[in-house]
Design a protein around this nucleic acid. Sequence first.
DNA 1: AATGAAAAGACCATAGG
DNA 2: CCTATGGTCTTTTCATT
Lengths: 162, 162
Amino acid sequence: MPSPSKKSQAGLDSTDRAILAALIEDGRMTNSALAARVGLAESTCAYRVRALRESGVVADISARIDLAAVGRPIQAVVQVQLASHSRTHIDALFDRLAGIPGALSVVHVAGDNDFHVHVAVASPERLRDLILEHITSHPAVTKTETQLIFEARRGSGVLGPL
Amino acid sequence: MPSPSKKSQAGLDSTDRAILAALIEDGRMTNSALAARVGLAESTCAYRVRALRESGVVADISARIDLAAVGRPIQAVVQVQLASHSRTHIDALFDRLAGIPGALSVVHVAGDNDFHVHVAVASPERLRDLILEHITSHPAVTKTETQLIFEARRGSGVLGPL
DNA sequence: AATGAAAAGACCATAGG
DNA sequence: CCTATGGTCTTTTCATT
């Protein structure tokens, strides 16, 4: 009866964490490889993975693509300041920013600038156009601050020690 | 012979873009499902996907996990200013920041603050500890500015119109 | 929860159009 | 780029523990 599964937090035992780590490393790993790696039978492993996906612990499994290869070699962070912080304005702007073509992520932060928008564009001109057309054109936006990204890297992630 | 493949940029035709879009949506889609979706024979589709991965256009396929579910419900952006902008210092700090446990991404930007570090932590105390231990402790760091993240969303991405 | 085993399905390499 | 064929590996299902 092999199951030393330690629960270190809300419903996730060490086997689940091993599965998560593996799927972060390679989201296309086959179930059999995964089962071998975490030491489960294939059927059990498949069951666990399904449970993790259905419960939303695995939010999605998705390809990351080379931005230069799809014609968007320039990246920037555009910080956006709002005049009004009413819920309605925040929500509306959030939607609008997330919908910008080329927006990779939009973050709503506590601070002087309310949103950080990470964008990828084809050229500096396109960056200007994007900001003018989709951001500063909004009546509630008081200010933007744009920083060119020299290099972006992934961090070591979240499955090391707490 | 059915092949309307329009090249809109460097080596990528519209079929490739359809494949990329599908794999961004669901990186674990089977080759047969993908082939059906983009209207290719399975053999051809598999060939395309392999080419896209080998050429690095598909950088990786990876699971995104719910940060709260793994015990890190607090996110923040920590902006970091450096005293010296020598190549050596930049590189060293970049490595160090990317290695912080809980670091999701590290971005080197042109601006007053040189780095933006996106982190996920278990609690505000852990955030403080992380900053003190891994960031301000570095001799070249002159200043940090930290913003709590209220909400982070994915943008619409890069495969819409240029 | 976890397992093994069998049926169903997906994949790969190959050859030919 | 498509079809078609094997042979192999993978996933799923289910009765059992």
